[in-house]
């Protein structure tokens, strides 16, 4: 990865769009295995996962609780390292990156949306959105201008100076979406983004996420239990017994995201 990237995330991603990096699919997983060592015994969670996500695609991962969806997402997001198999994220072979490079990759080119929003309590919506930019070294003033534009996009301009405690769950998740998009990441990973929201706000958040991701050809991987949002997916996979199987793909074609 170019050392220039950490200066201007926006330019980095735009440039990334034309270079060879983007020619490769953003997510390529082959024979991925992961186990947790607990109390001396190793529990395998992922036993040979294969996954390929094309640029601009929106892929959903479902599966029973404890099947390893979050684990897989953490690996895609360079938070966890695989035990075996090849994982290529945005053209980078994770097995060949040291911890620092993985951190940079995550910081500059991957956006996260969490189930419980995970906003920083002490910061206003605006400052929360600015955090990833500031981690990338964008000066505060510039970061705030860009954060405000993002809040506008998620319809929260008026609530920019509210603290998370003063926002509803739906609003919090919109702030979190804006934050995930702040550095204009090429890959967005969402773990149960609608689980803490009611039906209306869940659909609303998902629609927004899909819309904002599609606008710039970003790739989206969403872990969810929420069948209501499955129509937003291009493809759905089901994680079971440590492997990925194609899941309710029919639903997708029927629901159709293009019309949203």
């Amino acid at each position: 990865m170019s050392p220039l990237r950490h200066v201007h995330p926006r330019r980095a991603s735009e440039r990334g769009a034309e270079t060879a990096v983007s020619a490769a699919p953003p997510v390529v997983v082959e024979g991925l295995c992961k186990q947790y060592a607990r109390g001396g015994t190793a529990t395998p969670v992922l036993r040979g996962v294969d996954l390929r996500v094309e640029r601009g695609e929106c892929v959903f991962l479902t599966g029973p609780s404890g099947s390893g969806k979050s684990t897989l997402l953490a690996i895609l997001g360079c938070i966890l390292t695989p035990d075996a198999g090849v994982v290529r994220i945005l053209g980078e072979n994770l097995g060949l990156l040291d911890a620092h490079r993985r951190t940079l990759l995550r910081r500059q080119r991957i956006g996260f949306v969490f189930q419980r929003f995970q906003l920083l309590r002490g910061l206003t919506a605006l400052h929360n959105v600015a955090v990833p930019l500031q981690l990338c070294g964008v000066p505060p003033a510039t970061a705030l201008v860009r954060a405000m534009r993002l809040l506008e996009q998620v319809g929260l301009r008026e609530r920019a100076h509210a603290l998370p405690s003063q926002l509803s769950a739906g609003q919090c998740q919109r702030v979190a979406l804006a934050r995930a998009l702040a550095v204009e990441p090429e890959l967005i990973l969402a773990d149960e983004p609608t689980a803490n929201l009611d039906e209306y706000h869940g659909l609303e958040a998902m629609r927004l996420l899909r819309e904002l991701a599609a606008a710039r050809g970003r790739t989206l991987v969403v872990v969810t239990h929420d069948v209501r949002i499955l129509p937003f997916a291009d493809r759905v996979f089901r994680l079971e017994h440590g492997r990925l199987q194609p899941g309710e793909a029919r639903l997708v074609d029927a629901g159709g995201t293009r019309g949203v």
Binding site: I79, T103, R107, I110, F114, Q118, L120, P132, L135
Partner: peptide, 18 residues
């Protein structure tokens, strides 16, 4: 009190130096 928040920062790519 803010372990979660530090976890979030790390997940967003904050390194130990930061």
């Amino acid at each position: 009190d803010r372990i979660q928040e530090f976890g979030t920062l790390k997940a967003m790519g904050a390194d130990h130096g930061q």
